[in-house]
Amino acid sequence: MTGKHTLEEIQAAEKKPLWRRLGWLAMIWAGSVVALFIVASLMRMFMNAAGLSTH
């Protein structure tokens, strides 16, 4: 295996319903937003613990 997809595999992937492909896109996007929120919250928590705040 060279890691390249065959024409049959590509055609099979294109036959999947649009809603299913868009669902995967939405799930990946939502996952990245959640991950960014978690990282930002942790950074804010550490900054507040170190005494860095805006008020």
Rank of each mutant, 00 (worst) to 15 (best):
G23V: 06
L18M: 12
I38V: 14
I28C: 09
A30P: 01
V39S: 11
F46V: 11
M47K: 12
A40T: 04
A35W: 05
L25T: 02
S32I: 12
S41K: 02
M27H: 01
M27E: 04
A30I: 13
L18P: 00
A35E: 03
K16V: 15
W24G: 15
W19T: 08
A30W: 05
V39K: 04
L36F: 06
R21D: 00
W19S: 14
V33D: 09
R44Y: 11
V33A: 10
G31N: 10
V34C: 07
I38A: 12
S41D: 07
A30V: 15
V33K: 05
A40I: 05
R44K: 10
L36R: 01
A35Q: 02
I28P: 00
M47E: 03
R20F: 07
V33F: 09
M45H: 08
F37C: 09
R44M: 14
V34R: 04
A30S: 12
I28N: 09
V33G: 03
R44F: 10
R21H: 03
A26C: 08
L22Q: 12
W24I: 11
N48M: 09
P17N: 12
V34S: 06
M45W: 06
F37N: 08
A26D: 08
I38Y: 10
F37A: 15
R20W: 04
A26S: 13
L22N: 13
R44P: 01
